[in-house]
């Protein structure tokens, strides 16, 4: 029951490719064809140079832990506290908010700059979320 109440993304025309990607097991970013800027969140133009010539590509899914909080209260619907809300810095440059799975939700286990890799969590037939877990090896 609790999981049903978790905030669920609703894709827009500009973000659909990202959510199609996570569903297919890919973390998709966008790169500007004019200035090579890699950016997130999705939009059909480059926020650095305003070019509309941009391409979607499959990112490595690797990154590192940039910062986080461990939320105790109030907990969001669908979450059991304490849980970490993290910002991951992707190897390609952009940062994104995520949760860290397969890892104790403690300051001792969550060390800034630790290497992470994407771990997809299917919420339903339409939405798969990009979580991250400590990188193997």
């Amino acid at each position: 029951m609790a999981e049903a109440a978790r905030a669920k993304p609703k894709p827009t025309p500009e973000t659909q490719h990202f959510w199609d990607g996570t569903k297919a097991g890919e973390l998709r970013l966008q790169r500007c064809d004019a200035c090579a800027n890699v950016y997130f969140p999705p939009r059909p133009f480059c926020p650095s140079c305003a070019s509309r010539k941009v391409s979607v590509f499959k990112a490595s899914g690797k990154g590192k832990l940039y910062s986080y909080v461990i939320n105790h209260r109030p907990a969001a619907p669908g979450f059991t506290p304490p849980y970490a809300i993290a910002v991951v810095e992707l190897d390609e440059g952009p940062r994104m908010m995520s949760n860290i799975v397969d890892c104790p939700q403690t300051p001792e286990a969550l060390v800034l700059d630790m290497k992470l890799e994407v771990a997809f969590e299917k919420l339903d037939d339409k939405i798969t979320l990009p979580n991250f877990r400590p990188a193997k090896g």
């Binding site: 905030a7 609703k10 827009t12 939320n71 969001a76 908010m97 949760n99």
Partner: peptide, 10 residues
């Protein structure tokens, strides 16, 4: 709503 809320910000 798409890129922050699903990760438990509240």
């Amino acid at each position: 709503g798409q890129f922050e809320a699903p990760f438990g910000v509240y």
